[in-house]
Design a protein around this nucleic acid. Structure first.
Length: 305
DNA sequence: AGCGGTCAAGTTGAT
DNA sequence: ATCAACTTGACCGCT
C-alpha cells in the first residue's frame, strides 16, 4: 500500500546565497600574475578547496530545504580557461583531495536528488563572426563539460548569441558551430531564449535539428515576444527535452512598463508565474531573483502552501 | 574594519 | 561615446 507520491515542480537556486553563509571565491588575473609559480599553485589550491567545500555545503543546504536544483558558478575553478594561465587539477598540491571532493559532491547531489547545471557567462558566443571568439567559446564549453562530467550535471545552458545586423545569417553560423561540437558538449548543451535577440520561435528549429533542448525563460519571452503564446512556447520547449525539462522564472525589478524591465527583482511575484506550469510535470524551474535561496523558498511556499 | 577602484573575455540598447 | 545589463559582486590595496 504505497502512498501516492505527489509530484511537484522542482525549484532551482542560481549560484549564490543571500543569508546562508556559503560563498565562492575567485581571483583576478592581474593580481595572480604577480605571484611566483609556487604561490600561484598554493593560491589556486586554496581557492578550489574552498569552492568545492562550499559546493558540498550548497548541495546539502538545497537538499534540506526542498530546493532540488542548483546552478553552479562557472568560476568554480578560477582562471581555468584564461588563455595565459594554463593549469590542471593534477598540478595542484591537493589534487587527490580535490578529485575526491568532486566525487563527494556528485554522490551527495544524487542522494539528495539535487539536479546540477551550469550557465556559462556572456562571453560564450557560438555565432560570433569572429573565429577567435567562437574558438574560445568552445574551450569554455569543454571546461564546463569537464566539470559537468565530474559532478553529474546534465545542463550547460547558453543563449543564441548576437545578431550582427543579420539574424538569419547569425542563426546559420549558430547551426554550423553546433554541428561541429563534440558529444561531450552537445549531450548537455541547451539553448535559452533571451530578452534582446532570440525568441523561442527563432531557436526551436535549431533545437529540433540538433536535439538540443530549449530552456524556456518566460520573463525573456515577455520582453521579446514572437508569434507564440506563453502556453504554446512552454509546450514546444517542453517537447524538446529528452530528460526533465528546465524553465526559468523571474520578476522585473521596476515593473513591466519600465525600459529596464529585464532587471531582476529580489523575489518572484506570484502573478508572474505561469500557473499552467503546475500541470507540466516533471519540470525544473530555476528562480532568477536577487534574494536567492529566500526567493526560492518563498515561491515554493506560495505555489504549494 | 571599511571603502573605493578594479577586474579576461561579447553584444546590445539606453543614456 | 559611455555604460549598465547579463546567471552573479568579489577582491585587493589603501586608509
Amino acid at each position: 500500500m504505497g502512498m501516492l507520491k505527489t509530484q511537484k515542480i522542482r525549484f532551482g537556486l542560481c549560484c549564490l546565497f543571500l543569508e546562508e553563509d556559503i560563498k565562492f571565491k575567485t581571483t583576478t588575473f592581474k593580481y595572480f600574475s604577480k605571484l611566483d609559480a609556487q604561490e600561484k599553485l598554493e593560491k589556486l589550491d586554496m581557492l578550489i578547496l574552498h569552492n568545492i567545500n562550499s559546493l558540498l555545503k550548497a548541495i546539502e543546504f538545497c537538499g534540506e530545504n526542498h530546493i532540488y536544483s542548483f546552478r553552479i558558478t562557472s568560476t568554480l575553478l578560477p582562471l581555468y580557461t584564461h588563455p595565459e594561465c594554463k593549469y590542471s587539477i593534477e598540478d595542484l598540491p591537493s589534487s587527490a583531495r580535490i578529485f575526491s571532493l568532486f566525487e563527494k559532491c556528485r554522490k551527495k547531489a544524487q542522494k539528495n536528488n539535487v539536479r546540477l547545471g551550469f550557465h556559462p557567462d556572456q562571453f560564450v558566443v557560438l555565432n560570433s563572426p569572429r573565429e577567435d571568439v567562437v574558438e574560445k567559446s568552445i574551450k569554455d564549453l569543454l571546461y564546463h563539460a569537464f566539470l559537468a562530467e565530474l559532478l553529474g550535471a546534465d545542463v550547460i545552458n547558453i543563449h543564441g548569441g548576437g545578431m550582427y545586423g543579420d539574424k538569419l545569417e547569425a542563426l546559420k553560423r549558430l547551426r554550423k558551430t553546433i554541428s561541429k561540437l563534440p558529444s561531450k558538449i552537445t549531450s548537455r548543451l541547451t539553448l535559452e531564449n533571451d530578452d534582446k535577440c532570440y525568441t523561442p520561435s527563432d531557436l526551436l528549429p535549431v533545437c529540433e535539428e540538433f536535439s538540443i533542448p530549449l530552456v524556456y525563460d518566460v520573463h525573456h519571452h515577455r520582453c521579446l515576444k514572437d508569434n507564440l503564446t506563453e502556453e504554446e512556447a512552454s509546450e514546444k520547449a517542453y517537447e524538446t527535452w529528452n530528460r526533465e525539462p528546465l524553465f526559468h522564472i523571474s520578476s522585473p525589478k521596476e515593473g513591466w512598463e519600465d525600459s529596464k524591465r529585464s532587471r531582476h527583482h529580489d523575489y518572484i511575484d506570484l502573478e508572474d508565474f505561469p500557473s499552467f506550469w503546475k500541470a507540466m510535470l516533471p519540470l525544473t524551474v530555476e528562480v532568477e531573483a536577487k534574494a536567492k535561496e529566500r526567493a526560492v523558498i518563498q515561491l515554493c511556499n506560495e505555489i504549494y502552501p
